[in-house]
């Protein structure tokens, strides 16, 4: 196997470039190197102006998501040898505006997350003397899978509906809403329903399923959305039967 590989990186400097361009770099091809190692090699040894986001190197911070050969992936968890002999293409996350090189503008995502109140909502707090809000293992299992989301936005990048209709609230936001809806300590399900039953909410999803394919933490946003659609549809039917409240 060759000991080098070509990494074809998208470059964009808003002051200089009218549109993104690509630049080829020759990087060492090592068995234990991930795409992020290749980018760090370029930054340290070849071109210090290359811009990209990363932090933890271990699939927890959710910062290093990029398109590698047209697939949204965490570059810290994607091995170079799987793309040998190359060239391997590294581009900024699809469906987001590019700020510079591989850095995307995530303000749209940051703005819509809090709309679904992704935290424990309590309308009445128990007295402190009553102790903790205890949960059984079964109650934990209800939402645990959805709590693994690291906000890496790969699902937004993979979602064709988000790409076509930027108003769609998106997979991670809905999965996070479910994470709290299904938590026995939470009382905010009705508030979240009001947000998600909006035309830009839940019903934009056409169950393409790419979000679940892309998710590096096995959250299964597509499953969460379909499950929540049933809840939302039943609540809507109830509102027809019960009349305006």
């Amino acid at each position: 196997m060759a000991d080098t590989m070509t990494m074809r990186v998208t470059r964009y400097e808003p002051d200089l470039d009218h549109e993104p361009r690509t630049q080829d770099f020759s990087i060492p091809l090592r068995d234990n190197w991930v795409v992020l190692d290749g980018l760090n090699y370029i930054k340290d040894q070849l071109d210090g102006t290359l811009s990209y986001r990363w932090s933890c190197r271990m699939g927890i911070c959710g910062s290093c998501g990029m398109m590698v050969d047209d697939e949204p992936v965490l570059t810290c968890a994607t091995f170079l040898v799987d793309y040998a002999p190359g060239p391997i293409r590294v581009e900024p996350l699809a469906n987001f505006p590019v700020v510079r090189d591989l850095v995307v503008d995530i303000s749209d995502f940051i703005e819509r997350l809090p709309r679904v109140s992704p935290w424990l909502v309590r309308h009445e707090d128990e007295p402190v003397d009553d102790g903790e809000y205890l949960q059984t293992p079964g109650e934990l299992a209800e939402y645990e899978q959805y709590s693994m989301c690291i906000n890496c936005m790969l699902c937004y990048s993979a979602c064709p509906v988000y790409g076509l209709d930027p108003g769609f609230i998106g997979p991670a936001a809905i999965a996070l809403a479910q994470r709290y809806n299904l938590d026995s300590r939470d009382q905010g399900a009705a508030d979240r329903l009001d947000v998600l039953i909006h035309p830009d909410g839940l019903w934009g999803c056409t169950f393409v399923g790419e979000c679940t394919t892309a998710c590096p933490k096995d959250v299964d946003p597509a499953g969460a959305i379909q499950r929540y659609k049933l809840t939302a549809a039943i609540e809507t039917l109830k509102s027809y039967v019960e009349g305006p409240s």
Partner: peptide
């Protein structure tokens, strides 16, 4: 009260 639209009904029929 949930926002009323025909979409949930269309989806229920689709799903069934």
């Amino acid at each position: 009260m949930p926002h009323r639209s025909a979409e949930p009904l269309a989806w229920l029929a689709f799903s069934a």
